[in-house]
Design a protein around this nucleic acid. Sequence first.
DNA 1: GACAGATATGTAAGCGTTTCCAGAGTGACA
DNA 2: TGTCACTCTGGAAACGCTTACATATCTGTC
Lengths: 349, 349
Amino acid sequence: MVATALDILRERVILASIKDVAEAAGVSIATVSRALSGRGNVSATTLAAVRRAAHELDYVVSASASGLASGRTRNIGVLVPMINRWYYGSVLEGISAALMREGYDTTLYQLSKEVDQREKVFSDFLLRQRVDAVIAVNVELGEAEMKALHALDKPLVGVGGPLPGAPTLFWDEEAVAALATEHLIALGHTRIAHIGGSQETDQDFHLPTRRRAGYERAMREASLTVDDRLYLGADFSMAQGYQAAKQLLGHPVNRPTAIFAASDEMAIGAMLAARDLGLQLPHDLSVIGIDNHELADMFGLTTIEQRPHQQGETAVAMLLRTIRGLEPAQGHPIEHRLIVRSSTTRPPA
Amino acid sequence: MVATALDILRERVILASIKDVAEAAGVSIATVSRALSGRGNVSATTLAAVRRAAHELDYVVSASASGLASGRTRNIGVLVPMINRWYYGSVLEGISAALMREGYDTTLYQLSKEVDQREKVFSDFLLRQRVDAVIAVNVELGEAEMKALHALDKPLVGVGGPLPGAPTLFWDEEAVAALATEHLIALGHTRIAHIGGSQETDQDFHLPTRRRAGYERAMREASLTVDDRLYLGADFSMAQGYQAAKQLLGHPVNRPTAIFAASDEMAIGAMLAARDLGLQLPHDLSVIGIDNHELADMFGLTTIEQRPHQQGETAVAMLLRTIRGLEPAQGHPIEHRLIVRSSTTRPPA
DNA sequence: GACAGATATGTAAGCGTTTCCAGAGTGACA
DNA sequence: TGTCACTCTGGAAACGCTTACATATCTGTC
């Protein structure tokens, strides 16, 4: 019988257990466990022998057995409301890369819109004793959910959203929004519109409200009137940003000279709308967004940078401090940075 | 001492074990296991008693213990090259939602660009016996990696990329590209440019090459000459699509009347470039992409739809068939659909 | 050279399940 | 009434580790 390429693939490996390693190295299984896990004293020669045996047998510790015996799983649960948006994808990439570097697995719990599915995450999935800790990304939790999370009695870190009772990496949303607005004010704009969140988006996370508050504060501090007709809600997507901008710019009276959008995607939508209306950018209209989305550079969009990948990495670092029993990390604000590109300029004379 | 809101959160739950449930229900632990897992015979009354006891004690089976004893983990490993792109995020959402519905956890293995990290996925992470099966999304695996994957001897399903020896959900890339090209030909175009992949992108997955082949086949079948000057490589991003289109359209001689881009993002970049050059769309230039990206609708982009969320769901269904011991699913092509919007029209007279 | 303290190793008791096996009970049938 | 087949249940042996405890060996000190 001729071995085909596929036959070779089928070549199956019998997994070695700690016992096999112990025999091969000529020591007890307790010593193997100590040598490989780095807990307890092992002489240098024994350590070397065990390592070599383990390597030759392709031994990898069984997660179930180790987890059952020790209560540690080397696995972290990550709670996200969705995955296929640039922000969440980037945070996840950061988290997953950092965890892998530290030898941890990442298991993903997407909080579905379907209520019973969402409930199951808290009542079943997280209770299976599969994770050592939880990172919650930008999720607004109900009281029962918070209780369930804390009842796990496992380290917990929040990213983005507020997470009562747990260290959280948060953006000072108000300050960020104020900064964006102040940038426009400093350029001389007075009629500044804001495209923020809608009723709907605000239920998920209160961020739009806080950004709007920052915008209004900056306006007032500059003694500019806040005109409700210059506020429009949208769902943070490019398409709705486009719609909202058309609405704002199409009105014959008192057209704004600048738009502050609560996300880069909406800001880009606004730029496209202005162009379609025949406005010259940035001469006739300045636009600023928030995120430093990967598309911002291409559109020359002035924005405020948040680095989601970095946030994911930082959250992992905070979590590991706690897991390793170091003084637990404190929640703290994420730094932000204004990136000025070509989409903002002085208002037309 | 007054209980604050945070104190309430700290209220800790002692986890019940199967023994507690057995005592509460007045049966043996073996019976509880049978009742709750649905394996083996249990009388209706016993079943009810066990269920009630389990519910009252908030009992959830320990993943480690169950995994150790049975070898089943109720956890699926998902291999992806990256996360923060619309396509991957959407596939992941589909996979994760479908798995959760079935009571499975999803653990994420992002194949890093760093070689040693990538190697660790195959040599350590996947061998920890933490997963029951693996879904590989659009990853081009080396021979050693394929061997490692098959050596796990666990069900394996591929999405997108080719996965020798495992059922794969794949796109007929050539047919899709040919269809896009034929759409333009049918409208009367003869000078059709193609923006495809670059050397670099092709190393990751051979998809750009196959798409180019489809384009050339369609051209030849229509007796049109394939002009190498009408091919440009890019990295599938909007920015590089923009650059490539500027290059193609800026040339004074023999400007193409249509562009087929191998991704919607590149196609949108091309549309923006054309606009910036003062061309009237779609009159002066037709553009077609591939993906039906979430932005395609807003830009009126004609495209060929692939539904990544759906693909994720389907992959899970295929996997579960195998896990459950049903006749394992066969790999098969994903259906595709031409969606005609306003970005394509007849060439200028 | 005796002894304390540190270091290295082995023994064995879990960890919380699943599942094989045996035995008890039940009903059908001759 | 005895036998067989079937359903239901419990006892107990895994599953592959970690770790408390006991023991043995090695330092250095006086």
